[in-house]
Amino acid sequence: MFEIAGLAIGGIAALSSVVQAYYAAKSANKDLSNAVLLKSKKRAEKPLKNGVKVVANVIDKELLATLQQEIEVQLKELIEVFRSSNISDVERDHMIEKARLQICRFLSEVRRFNNDSLPTKRLEQLWLSNRCKT
């Protein structure tokens, strides 16, 4: 259970890294680097430890496993979108927004089951940087 929570938190952090890097690259009229994608993929493969106990204790095991799988799929799809040369900017924007919404969905579930608060500063920062709403 703790490993699933760690992977979910790691996946959310990785997704958020890609989203933030995309917006930074876009504002500088640059492409998202392969290094960012590779780093994010590796980050998602290692469970994070901060906040794991709280997340594992407040979210149902089955829901947590489902969320973790969705995050994993979302990250793989997002990485493929940026590795493919025949994807339009509109499609990339759509996938980035889909990833941002996935991040917010996960964080909203954590908040919902944790007395409307996020257990770590890092998760709070992810909430703010992805413009999640209550």
Rank of each mutant, 00 (worst) to 15 (best):
A56L: 05
D93W: 04
A99G: 06
N29D: 10
L7T: 04
R105C: 01
K39C: 03
F82T: 01
I59D: 13
P47S: 01
S33E: 07
K26R: 13
N115D: 11
R112P: 05
A56E: 15
V58I: 10
V73H: 12
I12R: 00
T120Q: 04
D31K: 10
A99C: 09
I59P: 00
Y23P: 11
L63Q: 14
V55C: 09
V19I: 15
E91T: 12
L48Q: 03
S108C: 07
E124F: 05
K121A: 09
L38P: 02
G11C: 07
K26A: 13
K53W: 15
L123N: 01
L118R: 00
Y23T: 12
P119Q: 01
A13C: 07
A25D: 11
R122F: 14
N115E: 02
G51V: 03
Q68Y: 01
E77S: 14
N29P: 05
E124R: 00
K46V: 10
K76I: 12
E91I: 13
D60H: 10
V55R: 05
R111L: 04
K26L: 04
A99R: 07
L78S: 03
S84G: 09
F82H: 02
K42N: 13
S84P: 10
Q102H: 06
D116N: 09
N115M: 02
L7V: 06
A24V: 15
T66R: 09
V58M: 09
R111M: 12
G51Q: 07
K53Q: 14
Q102S: 11
N86F: 15
Q20T: 15
A14F: 04
L123M: 10
L75V: 03
L7G: 03
L7W: 02
K30A: 14
K98Q: 06
A13Y: 05
K41G: 10
G6D: 05
A65I: 13
Y23D: 06
E109S: 11
K98I: 11
L7N: 11
S84C: 04
K39G: 08
N115T: 12
H94L: 10
V73I: 14
E124A: 02
L15Q: 00
Q69D: 05
L67M: 14
